[in-house]
Design a protein around this nucleic acid. Sequence first.
DNA 1: TTTATTTCTTAATCTAGATTAATAGAAAGG
DNA 2: CCTTTCTATTAATCTAGATTAAGAAATAAA
Lengths: 175, 175
Amino acid sequence: MDFLTEILGTEIKASIKYFKKREIIQKQGFVSKNGFYVKKGLIRSYSVDEKGKEHIFMFGAEEWIIADLESNVFNKPTQLYIETIEASEIVIFSLDYFNHDLSTKEKLQKNSILLTRRIGSLQRRVIQLMSSSAKQRYEMFLETYPLLPNRLPQKMIASYLGITPEALSKIRGER
Amino acid sequence: MDFLTEILGTEIKASIKYFKKREIIQKQGFVSKNGFYVKKGLIRSYSVDEKGKEHIFMFGAEEWIIADLESNVFNKPTQLYIETIEASEIVIFSLDYFNHDLSTKEKLQKNSILLTRRIGSLQRRVIQLMSSSAKQRYEMFLETYPLLPNRLPQKMIASYLGITPEALSKIRGER
DNA sequence: TTTATTTCTTAATCTAGATTAATAGAAAGG
DNA sequence: CCTTTCTATTAATCTAGATTAAGAAATAAA
């Protein structure tokens, strides 16, 4: 839990939980007050549209934090489901660190840097979705997350890229 | 400059500059160490792809901050141009507030909340781009920014939505 | 005002990727 | 082990939105 305490401090309430494959950790539609730190395993966050189609928003492997920050800070029901892909060891921590003033300046600064990094990756994702073809996005995904594809079924990669499994299969055939 | 000092403090170096319509404030490819607070006017940030096509990443009207945070924090060349749409009054401030420790805890907390809000809106944008049709995205844009369309040429709205002006014109004709 | 430039609209054609469907392979469960 | 269920591939067809083109409307410039 080293990395986590470094950001959040020891005062933060946190608990480790063990999940099997394909267990749902968080459901769409509720206000989420928790963050999920992946100690071991692999999880994903995704939304489900009106047609019942899933869209993977992000993956979280070891050392990643998955959380719907906006839901927490602004008390909005989360748009995201969170589910394990592999059996996982997850640190569930309370996210109300904005409200109490336990945090020190350094922790807040570290936190700001993490938030900024996330903004950066979301920014790149938006620009990518607007300006690149499915094939280009697939190639960038492979470059950015070279280790993930081995652990993921292809249909999930497709869902992350915003295309169908059929389209991804075709792209892969072309290479 | 009230709103700004509230977040950044009075110690922060900042200067007000006046720009005419269609002036470039920041160029793609350079490391950006500045943030831009729109006191009056309207600006946009956009990227240009290999084919020379522009993709608007975001608009900034009064009280908005536009900045490529990732470029600043991680010393990466920015992907974004920033340009005025209307004649504008812009507060340019230095973004190295992570490095020096002038900031107080409250300011850091306020800053975290701003960052979190931005993550939320980017998250919604990514999910939207993946799961909604052009028409749906246009309607959500109108709901989210009801005052902006009057101040924007349609081709810029199209660029923000990730579609061509022709496609937007068609969508508008259908309503 | 007149002319030039940019923006918007409409229509025809084209294409990336969706949808549907059918088959084969892999994994999971009994 | 066999059977069931999930995942990946391939191919045919369809469609949202891109591209191209040309005219109309609006803005800016002279």
